[in-house]
Nucleic acid binder design. Structure first.
Lengths: 331, 1316
DNA sequence: GGATTTTCTACCGACAATATCACTACATACTCG
DNA sequence: CTTGTATGTAGTGATATAAGTAATAGAAAATCA
């Protein structure tokens, strides 16, 4: 109830010391970027608050889950913003220590956890009563008022993979989103942001952006300026609000199969590409409600969903949609 | 001293073979004949094994006219006579190798296709364009052969354009190409055809006056068909009235020549010969237009084919046919036969008209026929489009000409069969990679084109079959040949007509005619057209319904469809079978979809005359399997040209001369097992119902992890299913192949991998295949067992069962004691005790059971006529060679080079040694050791010991051992990994201990290869300004050349000169490791960095190696692969030597690399041969020769070197991390690297200091520095603060050879278990 | 030139990534002087 | 008619693609600043 918290200021090392002490030497957590500028975090949060129109009361009800806090700059901003509590998931030891020391000054609001936001188990564990279990909601017509998910995505394939999985999880109400319609705000590296938010027709249009379009509303909140990140990178803070009704009606596995195959040749027309779905799959063209002479990259999520549905209903569709892509060598 | 004898004998024998297959006027052949038609007394080879023979003149010259150093009679190698070519980075290499740049080779292929299809306007355009845009390259690559073929195109058809021909002739001369006799033959032919006798005469007169070409050569030209030669006679008649002396002279010469070719009586046959060949003069397109839709062959052809058809279906019938005709037909008309089978079925059932039989008609065949009929109009349409190209349709221009090379019917059936054949290839379930498919289809078209239109072999064969004495197994061959000849005489007209039917070239085909290989890009493009048309038209009707309306409909599902898969994030284009097609294919035996090409032969393969001439009767094949490496090809070519590889070819001929048959007893059991659908031995069970998928876990919908694992499980199951399926398919193909040859003899033409190891060319069923294949095959010829044969048969029986680590006596007893089991296996193979199924090699065991049982029951085993091949296997053959090379006592004993009472088993030996070490450490309290104590079996270490020869690294060995330990199951899973690490170390150290000599040699080989692969020719360094030129003249020459190049490539003058320094030389490392085997085969390691390019095809782009890109070597691969390759080249040498020697002794011989087979009764003889040859081989200083060859081959090469410079500015030379690098993880675990150890001892005292100013060159001592590694100095340097490195180039030299041990190779002679 | 990051990790038989975009050089069309 | 400019295009090189790289380590080559 104390909206007046003593504000927390994280210690920010110089770039050189950061390089030495924090930048992971192992290729495991290779390009972990972290916000290294208090002002960026503060403005970011301010904008976010404007956008979400959170009241102090609402904030006081909200538990934030933050992945990859890094130096804890964003964590501090969240703390200062007045969240009820903040689970800060940091697997990397030097960072974890940094978060721990912040937490010690946070009167128990910041709760550092040595978990990796990338690991699937993490979300199973978060479901435990001790963490978020009590805050779960079933209904999807309403946004979960108690959980807020945030963090800084690594600029790596893992980061990209993670983001894509968030999107699928929203669609399928899995992992984090098995706990309700949880809003998210993520710091995303520029390139990934482009892909994540690419609209139809854009050059960056890809599978992920279709899924995203189908399952969430995305808003750009703020972008980092010059030296806000260690190492210097352009990041965007993005607010992700899952839709009450996801636009994908088809069976997810079918949808994914269709999506994957269509996007092989995204600048070709559906008329042609549809054949790669299965032998004789062009028969479903007539059963679609839109002009099928359309480039794949120009299709909306709904249109692709419709293709998936019609494909699924097609009696002669290939039964096996799981493709073994890993030809593992035999002895 | 048997080797020189062998050499002589071989040469003599080749001579015989040669003459049979030789066409007298082949140029390359002339050269060969020069070396082979030397006086030679056959009796020498078979009877008098005198020592002096190797120094007789005949033997010397027979061996090689080029061998100039015959002073060491025992030597096999031709000292100083290696094929040495410039480094591929040098311009000189391009000149010598004539490796076409990819753009040119494509254009050439297209050009040739245009010529062959009569599209001369297009051909002219291409010629013009090439000469305009690629002037320089054309100067290098175009020769008279190419130009002749081009010129011939003008005068070929029924509308000869002799004047155009003449115009191009002038241009030919102006391009600096010297016309030869062929050129004149073509020109004259053209004018004769047009009736311009005057011009023709003028041309010949011109030739006589101005050139050295002989009239005889003109008339004998391959470009002239017999009836065209008769045209020359016409010329004589027409010119009789001329009074000029010159003309008279000319005519006399001409007459003489014509008589020589045609025979003087030929004038009487002119009329009927002409009528016979005249249909072929009709333009190709018209021929095929007249063909009735359903019957692509004309009347005679159909009759002929149906004969073969019935022959193939009923192999009893086939026996009655002439085998030569059958083989010819199989090769030349395999696709027609396949097609005819479809037609035949269809017509037959139609005729009967009853639906009952229509039901019996295989649905797959019905569909295939349907596709065939549907794709043909599409093909015709496409061809039409290609003919009338509007605008610049680049794609159509590049594949169009190829589509008319073959009749559309053939294109269609080729495509269908190829796609069916590729089912499940490249690890794709129910499909294939697009790249593979389109390239293979293209290749199949090319091969079919070659087979159909390359008449030369046919001509040569027919003409060349003279009745000569051949050695033992050649006799039957000759009988067949004789029969063929007789038949040919009776039946000549029909046969000729049926063959000449598809011959568009007036019967003109020969090696003088240019026939460029199609580059992969062309193959891919051509293949993609056919494939995509087939995809478009091949459909299967399937009942279905419209889910929206519920209305019942029939969908026409494409049998194949093009799609993509992602493999680790990368797109891979694939062509998949539809489920319906998969169903069809899996339901019926693959009998009628059996691919007609590359089947076993039913007559003796054509001996290898040349590196690319032998094997099948008509198919153009090459004796070595080349990997996208022009370098390999050119070395082989040069060696062949210089008669260096005759011995090797002879060896291959011997392997190909072994006559096989299907073991009917085993076949019946296999069939029964197969039809039962159960798993028997290595035949997997038929999957009747889909395997049930595992239950989805409860958290499947909420936890991605759960889902992931479930999906993985499903994938695993699918994978298993796929493997089962493709395994069953494989068995299906093998069984069907065997069935096709049930009553026919089989020969396997052989070729080699690039190290010289021999392989049968037919891929599905051969004696190198798995147990099933081997069980299905036996020698065709039977030989009475006799005392020793009976003994060996029993031993062999035990071996196959897996009882092969005991003494021969024990093994013999094993068989005797198991006689009841053996008889039961024979009497009730599928219902009895099934003893044979427990054998290590069940099918072969069963095969042996039949043999043993039959022998026993015959009443007198000693007289039993046995066909079973009995094997003698080298015990760890690689290590045997290593031990022999190193003279390594302990090693020699361990692999049975030295005699012993019972076979030594390396694997057990290593296991014992490791066990000892482990026990020792267990007592010392080592936890790993305690856990492993007593658990180290032979099996655990076997794979690692085996692969050690191949240079397995620590990581690989650890993985192997890990797997073995996991299998055991008595070790806690989580400890397995660390235990495997521990054990791998122990195994390596034990190996190092046991095979110290091998280790040393292996390390030396690795090190030497590494140096070679990193080295650069001096010239290159000079030209890049790194080293000074030797002389101003050299510099001048270089500058001139550069200037010249600049002029040439002014257009694309963006020459990026890559940074070139001793520090980072990898981009310029162009030197591959090359050596010559003791039999004279040059071996080039092909490992280079891949230079793939995307090629656009109709279906998708395809990623293909760009051949003209000279790419830097993969130095690591070069060095790690060298030891195994070298050893394999030696074991291949030993095998080929043994093969030839066995042949000389009249033994039937077959081999699987290091397992040698012969009749039971001949095992003793073969054993002697094996040992003699091994001793012969290893009596030579192989390592010294290799070293010497390297020194010669890589003379003037420079090696990048880095040396440390200390503060006092005095260079302390040493290689930075270099010398020690040769002992990789592996040898690090063993004794210290012998290379450095040796040198430490030898050169440790040498003065390492070097004047840095002229350190770059001329310092002969530098090579020592490379090797030496002064440990103490290293330690000093660690303390020194400032390290400076200097990079420079030193002369390439090699470490001293490891010292050879005391083992006397002659002991092998007395080692019973050397091969056993 | 020194340091860091990536890439291997057993030989041969038997190979194989592809769509798309940005950019360049070249050819053609068109226009203007 | 020539020349210059705009436009179109064939050819080339770069880049993204998918996605739990199930575990492990160590040297050599490639890349980077």
């Amino acid at each position: 109830m104390s909206s007046v918290r003593s504000s927390l200021v994280p210690k920010i090392p110089t770039f050189e010391t950061w390089s030495k002490q924090f930048r992971g030497k192992t290729p495991r957590n290779l390009p972990r970027c972290t916000i290294a500028d208090v002002e960026t975090a503060e403005i970011g949060f301010k904008r976010l608050r404007q956008h979400t129109k959170w009241t102090n009361v609402q904030l006081a009800e909200l538990t934030a889950v933050e992945i990859y806090p890094g130096l804890g700059v964003w964590t501090s901003a969240l703390f200062n913003g007045g969240f009820n509590s903040i689970y800060s998931l940091e697997p990397n030891v030097p960072y974890y220590k940094q978060i721990k020391s912040l937490a010690d000054k946070s009167e128990g609001v910041i709760r550092p956890l040595k978990k990796d936001g990338y690991d699937w188990e993490t979300y199973v564990e978060l479901k435990d009563k001790a963490y978020l279990g009590s805050l779960m909601t079933r209904a999807w017509n309403k946004v979960n008022q108690n959980i807020f998910f945030t963090g800084t995505l690594p600029k790596s394939s893992k980061g990209e993979q993670l983001l894509a999985q968030f999107a699928t999880c929203i669609v399928n109400k899995m992992a984090l989103h098995s706990m309700g319609r949880i809003p998210m705000a993520l710091w995303i590296p520029d390139q990934l942001y482009e892909k994540f938010t690419a609209s139809r027709g854009s050059k960056a249009r890809c599978k992920m952006s279709v899924v995203t379009e189908a399952c969430a509303e995305i808003d750009l909140i703020y972008s980092t300026q010059s030296n806000a990140m260690y190492p210097k990178e352009l990041y965007h803070l993005v607010y992700i609000l899952p839709r009450p009704i996801v636009k994908i009606k088809a069976d997810w596995d079918v949808f994914e199969y269709v999506l994957k195959h269509l996007f092989v040749m995204q600048r070709f027309s559906l008329n042609k590409v549809v054949r790669t779905l299965g032998p004789g799959a062009d028969i479903i063209l007539d059963r679609l409600s839109f002009d099928t002479n359309i480039q794949i990259c120009d299709m909306t999520a709904e249109q692709i969903d419709q293709v998936a549905i019609k494909f699924d209903q097609w009696p002669l569709r290939p039964q096996v949609l799981i493709e073994d892509s890993n030809p593992r060598s035999l002895e | 001293m048997s080797l020189p004898l062998v050499r002589q004998a071989t040469t003599g024998n080749r001579n015989v073979l040669l003459r049979q297959y030789t066409k007298a006027n082949s140029l390359s052949l002339r050269q060969r004949l020069a070396t082979t038609t030397l006086p030679f007394d056959r009796r020498c080879a078979s009877t008098q094994l005198t020592r002096s023979i190797s120094s007789t003149p005949s033997a010397l010259s027979a061996a090689s006219a080029l061998a100039e150093t015959p002073h060491h009679p025992s030597k096999v190698s031709y000292d100083g006579k290696h094929i040495i070519l410039p480094n591929p980075s040098r311009p000189a290499f391009k000149q010598a190798a004539k490796v076409l740049p990819s753009g040119i080779s494509e254009q050439f292929a297209i050009l040739n296709a245009c010529i062959q299809t009569g599209a001369m306007d297009r051909a002219e355009r291409i010629m013009n364009e090439l000469y305009r845009n690629r002037t320089e390259e054309m100067k290098i690559f175009v020769d008279a052969q190419i130009f002749n073929t081009f010129l011939n195109g003008f005068v070929q058809g029924n509308k000869p354009q002799a004047n155009d021909c003449l115009a191009w002739f002038d241009r030919m001369v102006s391009y600096g190409i010297t016309p030869d006799a062929n050129t004149y033959a073509i020109l004259v032919k053209g004018f004769l055809k047009m009736g311009s006798y005057h011009t023709a005469r003028m041309l010949l007169q011109d030739m006589r006056k101005n050139t050295n070409n002989q009239m005889m050569d003109v008339v004998k030209s391959d470009f002239l068909a017999p009836n065209e030669v008769k045209g020359f006679r016409q010329l004589i008649t027409e010119s009789q009235n001329s009074n000029q002396v010159e003309v008279q002279e000319l005519l006399r010469e001409l007459e003489l020549a014509a008589d020589n070719v045609l025979g003087s009586e030929s004038s009487s046959t002119v009329a009927d010969k002409n009528t016979r060949t005249s249909p072929a003069v009709i333009a190709p397109t018209t021929i095929y237009e007249n063909i009735p839709e359903a019957r692509p062959m004309d009347a005679i052809g159909v009759k002929f084919l149906q004969e073969q058809l019935s022959a193939l279906q009923n192999s009893e019938e086939a026996l009655k046919m002439d085998p030569f005709d059958l083989q010819m037909a199989l090769e030349k008309q395999g696709y027609e036969v396949a097609l005819q089978r479809l037609v035949h079925m269809r017509e037959a059932s139609k005729e009967r008209g009853d639906t009952l039989n229509a039901l019996h008609l295989s649905p797959l065949k019905k569909n295939m026929w349907d596709w065939h009929e549907k794709v043909i109009p599409l093909l015709k349409e496409e061809i039409e489009k290609c003919v009338n190209i509007k605008g610049k349709d680049v794609e159509r221009r590049s594949y169009g000409p190829f589509l008319t090379l073959l009749p559309v019917e053939k294109l269609s059936i080729i495509t269908i069969l190829e796609l069916l054949r590729l089912h499940n290839s490249s690890g794709i379930a129910d499909g294939m990679k697009t790249a593979r498919a389109v390239i293979d289809v293209g290749k199949a078209v090319e091969m079919e084109y070659n087979a159909t239109y390359m008449k030369r072999n046919n001509k040569g064969l027919r003409g060349g079959y003279n009745i000569q004495n051949m050695s033992a197994n050649g006799k039957e061959f000759n009988m067949a040949v004789q029969k063929a000849l007789n038949k040919q005489q009776e039946d000549e007209a029909a046969t000729e007509a049926s063959i000449s039917m598809d011959n568009k070239n007036d019967g003109v085909q020969s090696s003088d005619i240019w026939n460029p290989v199609w580059p992969s890009s062309i193959r891919a493009k051509v293949g993609s057209v056919l494939t995509s048309l087939l995809i478009e038209s091949a459909k299967i009707p399937v009942p279905s319904y419209n889910p929206d309306t519920g209305e019942k409909i029939t969908e026409h599902i494409p049998a194949f469809f093009h799609t993509y898969q992602y493999v680790r994030g990368k797109r891979v284009g694939i062509i998949k079978f539809s489920d319906q097609l998969t169903q069809l294919v899996s339901k019926e035996p693959l009998r009628d979809t059996l691919h007609p090409r590359l089947m076993p032969m039913i007559v003796h393969p054509r001996p290898w005359l040349h590196y690319n001439d032998g094997g099948y009767l008509t198919a153009k094949s090459i004796c070595m399997r080349i990997k996208d490496s022009p370098e390999q090809q050119i070395y082989l070519h040069k060696a062949s040209e210089n008669a260096k590889i005759d011995h090797v070819l002879k060896g291959l001929d011997v392997l190909g001369s072994t006559k096989w048959r299907v073991n009917k007893n085993v076949f019946d059991v296999v069939l029964e097992a197969w039809n039962s659908g159960e798993a028997v031995a290595d035949i997997p069970p038929a999957i009747t119902e889909a395997i049930r998928l595992p239950e989805k876990p409860s958290d499947y919908d909420t936890d991605p992890k759960a889902k992931f694992h479930w999906v993985n499980k499903v994938k695993e199951i699918q994978n298993m299913e796929k493997n089962y399926h493709s395994l069953r398919c494989d068995v299906n193909y093998k069984v069907e192949t065997a069935r096709a040859f049930l009553n026919l003899p089989m020969y396997f033409p052989h070729n080699m991998d690039f190290r010289g190891r021999a392989y049968p060319i037919p891929p599905t069923l051969n004696h190198l295949g798995n147990d099933l294949c081997r069980g299905l095959l036996c020698f065709d010829e039977a030989k009475p067992l006799g005392e020793s044969g009976w003994r060996w048969l029993k031993i062999h029986m035990a071996n196959l069962y897996g009882y092969d680590k005991h003494s021969f006596t024990e093994r013999e007893r094993f068989t005797v004691e198991n006689m009841d089991n053996i008889l039961d296996s024979v009497d009730n193979p599928m219902t009895g005790q099934k003893w044979w199924l427990q054998a290590e090699a069940p099918w072969q065991c069963l095969s042996a059971c039949y043999e043993v049982a039959a022998a026993v029951r015959s009443g007198n085993p000693l007289e039993f006529e046995s066909r079973l091949p009995v094997h003698q296997d080298g015990t760890c053959n690689g290590l045997q060679h290593y031990a022999a090379l190193g003279g390594d006592m302990a090693g020699a004993r361990a692999v049975n080079l030295a005699p012993g009472d019972r076979p030594a088993d390396v694997y057990t030996g290593v296991a014992d040694l490791v066990n000892k070490l482990v026990e020792q450490e267990a007592e010392e309290g080592n936890e790993d050791a305690i856990l492993l104590k007593g658990k180290i079996s032979r099996k655990v270490v076997k794979q690692t010991v085996m692969t050690n020869v191949y240079g397995v690294t620590f990581i690989g060995a650890r993985a192997q051992i890990e797997n073995r330990l996991k299998e055991r199951g008595d070790i806690p899973q989580e400890r397995v990994y660390s235990l495997a690490s521990y054990l791998a170390k122990k195994v390596f150290s034990s190996l190092g201990e046991m095979f110290n000599g091998a280790q040393n040699i292996q390390d030396w080989l690795t090190d030497s290869a590494r140096r070679i692969a990193r080295s650069v020719p001096k010239d290159t360094l000079q030209e890049t300004g790194i080293l000074p030129f030797d002389s101003p003249e050299q510099e001048q020459r270089f500058l001139a050349r550069v200037e010249n190049e600049k002029m040439k490539s002014r257009k694309n003058g963006k020459k990026v000169t890559k940074t070139f320094s001793a520090r980072n030389p990898s981009a310029n490392q162009m030197t591959s490791v090359i050596w010559t085997t003791p039999l004279g085969l040059p071996i080039v390691q092909p490992y280079r960095r891949t230079g793939k390019k995307q090629v656009t095809t109709l279906l998708q782009t395809v990623f293909i190696e760009d051949p003209d890109l000279s790419r830097p070597v993969n130095a690591m691969k070069q060095s790690t692969a060298f030891p195994p390759n070298f050893i394999h080249s030696l074991d291949a040498t030993h095998m080929l030597m043994s093969a030839v020697a066995c042949y000389e002794k009249g033994l039937t011989f077959a081999s699987v690399h290091d397992s040698y087979w012969t009749h039971a009764c001949c095992v003793d003889d073969m054993n002697e041969v094996i040992r003699d040859q091994f001793i012969e081989l290893h009596s030579q200083p192989i390592m010294e020769n290799l070293h010497a060859e390297f020194m010669e081959r890589y003379k003037d090469y420079r090696l990048p070197n880095s040396e440390e410079v200390d503060q006092t500015d005095k260079a302390v030379t040493k290689t930075k991390k270099r010398a020690s690098s040769s002992k990789s993880a592996k040898s690090a675990a063993t004794a210290a690297s012998p290379v450095s150890a040796e040198n430490e001892a030898l050169f440790g005292l040498a003065d390492m200091q070097l004047d840095e100013e002229n350190g770059d060159e001329d310092d002969d001592d530098l090579d020592l520095d490379l090797v030496n590694n002064d440990v103490k100095a290293d330690e000093d340097d660690k303390t020194s603060s400032s390290k400076k490195y200097r990079y420079n180039w030193v002369e390439l030299a090699f470490a001293p050879l490891p010292k050879k041990g005391e083992f006397d190779i002659n002991q092998v002679k007395d080692s019973d278990y050397f091969f056993h």
